[in-house]
Structure formats: structure tokens, C-alpha cells
Amino acid sequence: MSQTSALVIFIAAIFTNNILLTNFLGMCSFIACSGQIRTSLGLGTAVIFVMIMTTILNYIIYHFVLVPFALVHLQFIVFIAVIAAFVQLVEMFVERFSPRLYFALGIFLPLITVNCAILGASLFMIIRKYSFLQSVGFGVGAGIGWAVAIVLLAGLRQKMRYSNIPEPFQGVPIAMVVTGVLAMAFMGFAGMVSIQ
């Protein structure tokens, strides 16, 4: 595991081990915010940014604070605190320095704290024992993979608005089934590269 190059992990995190379609992380906002391509693009961008930064921060904190002081069992609470604090910081920073970006991304930022893809990426990084460079590759790839998946679903859902769907299946259930088809399509990438 430890000698896989960061580039391979990056590609794998987008296609073969897509954090959403194979690990099911970040489903809540995935279903809720995939109504329109514009919204999903905004959320996707915010997720990419926050995911890269929190993976790096959590890597540093885990290996230079938690491990030396034998506090590994506290990793969940530390990670989520880092994520929440970072999101808050970004929100204040963006609001102060770039109002336009704030209006584009701002409303999505609070949603990201509870996006399990972000916490999941940090946890996977620990469980799979990535090195620093691998973690960065994984963070970038996982973020882009998530964004790709949500934009794809948003496109599909926009098309589906004109389809004749049985009443109980309208809305969330059909989105789920379509995501299943999407996941199946992404399985076609399997074998291209592989991690774990």
C-alpha cells in the first residue's frame, strides 16, 4: 500500500474508488443539492477546496500531535473539530475578502461541516496508512470525484424532470436508482488503476 504513487491514488479516487459511488459518503447533500447543475457545481467546488485543506490539516495533526501523545482514540472528535473550525474560518475569510465568491459558495459552506465525505476522507487516509503525498493525492482526487458525481446526477435529474415516473418513485427514490446506474457505469473503470 505504501509504495503506490500519489498520482495513482489521485486517479483511483476519482474513477475506481469514487468516494460517493463506491463508499457512499456525502449522500445527504448529494441527494438534496443535485436539483440543478449550477448549485451542484458550487457545492462541488466548495467540497474540493475544503477536502484538500482538511485532509492536509488532519494529516499533520494526526501524525504530529495525536500519535506522539497517544491520543489516537480521540481522532474522531479532533477531526470533526478541525473541519468545523476550518469551515468557519473559510467562511469568515471569504466573506471579508471576496463578497462575490461568498455569494457563490457561502451558502454551501455550513452544509459541508456535516458532509460525511470530508470526515470520511480523513478517516480513510488514516485507515489506509497514507503518506503525506499520498494523502494530498487522495484528498484532491476524492474531492474532484465527489464533485464529478454530483454534477453528473444534477444533469440527469434535470433531464428526468420531463420523464413519466411512477408517483411513489418521484424525487428521491428515482434519484437513488439513477445513482445506482451511475455507480454501475463507474464500475466500468475498474481495472484501470486499483487501490486497496
Partner: peptide, 9 residues
Amino acid sequence: APGAFFALG
């Protein structure tokens, strides 16, 4: 993975 989505849907 796809089966999970189908089942929940």
C-alpha cells in the same frame, strides 16, 4: 455499490 442504491431507492 449499485445494489445498495437500487435497494434503498
